[in-house]
């Protein structure tokens, strides 16, 4: 059960998208999300579909791998779609028993499902093609300006990368504690919400204690290795823009302009 958690999963192949600078990908994802919410016409749909298909093809990540991420939100999609379908007032398209479905309802339900699906697939391309470290490096560099308003950008990025490093360790530990508690008679399979919540206590308490102990050890180890914040720190793998990144920027801006144009025209 715990093995299924694949946060920030990375799909290691060598592709154009993998080689892009993380800043480009962050910027591209942001633009893509804006485009999705601008598009409200079939032409807009079509444009985004072409863009998404091209990027998926370039990334060399199998399509089935991306769709896997959708499974988790199928229920959410159905509920959101149903709400839009039945609760949007307007001219009735057809009536089922006492519930009428309007044309506007059908349109907004379709739009909703389309946006959410594309949102998940689009953003998962970013995490699938970027290692967690690149991602935090990219964030740190892109958000550098926030330093001027005293946002501790370096510290946040460092925290993110350490958190990612410790996810597998803590998952393993949870597994171990679970087995230890089961060996002493704890029952994690009980039915009912309250019972389930109660069963979590003997799991979470030791987990938290050990997480704090680890954090303390890690802080000591970092200090012992001269860590003293972002000041005067050099980078082992600094980010450099290459020609391909410039091309990507132009392409992103072009798609953005095109989707705005489509939204205005139709």
């Amino acid at each position: 059960m715990l093995k299924d958690i694949t946060l920030g999963q990375y799909y290691p192949v060598d592709s154009v998208v993998h080689r892009l600078d993380p800043r480009v990908k962050l910027f591209g994802t942001l633009m893509y999300v804006i485009c999705l919410f601008v598009a409200d016409h079939v032409a807009g749909f079509a444009l985004m579909t072409v863009v998404l298909a091209t990027v998926i093809f370039l990334s060399k990540v199998p399509f089935s791998y991306m769709v896997r991420g959708l499974k988790a939100i199928v229920l959410l999609l159905v509920i959101a779609g149903a709400f839009n379908l039945f609760l949007t007032p307007g001219e009735a398209a057809f009536t089922l028993w006492k519930i009428s479905v309007s044309w506007a309802g059908i349109k907004s339900a379709l739009l909703m499902v389309f946006r959410m699906t594309y949102l998940i697939i689009g953003t998962s391309i970013m995490t699938l093609t970027t290692t967690p470290n690149q991602l935090t490096d990219g964030l740190e560099k892109s958000l550098r300006l926030l330093n001027y308003i005293h946002v501790p950008v370096h510290e946040i990025a460092m925290m993110m990368s350490i958190a990612l490093r410790f996810i597998p360790i803590l998952i393993e530990e949870t597994d171990k504690i679970m087995k230890a508690q089961m060996a002493r008679g704890a029952d994690f399979e009980k039915k009912g919400l309250v019972n389930k919540a109660k069963a979590m206590v003997p799991l979470l308490v030791p987990l938290f204690v050990s997480a704090f102990r680890r954090a303390n050890d890690l802080a000591l180890a970092m200090e012992a290795r001269c860590y003293h914040g972002g000041e005067g720190r050099t980078k082992m793998k600094p980010l450099h823009y290459r020609r391909i990144d410039a091309v990507a920027y132009v392409a992103i801006l072009f798609v953005f302009a095109a989707s705005i144009a489509v939204a205005i025209l139709y």
Binding site: P132, N133, S161, I169, R214, D217
Partner: peptide, 10 residues
């Protein structure tokens, strides 16, 4: 503890 002193994931 070897786990608690390795900072990066590579």
């Amino acid at each position: 503890n070897p786990d608690n002193q390795i900072i990066a994931s590579v």
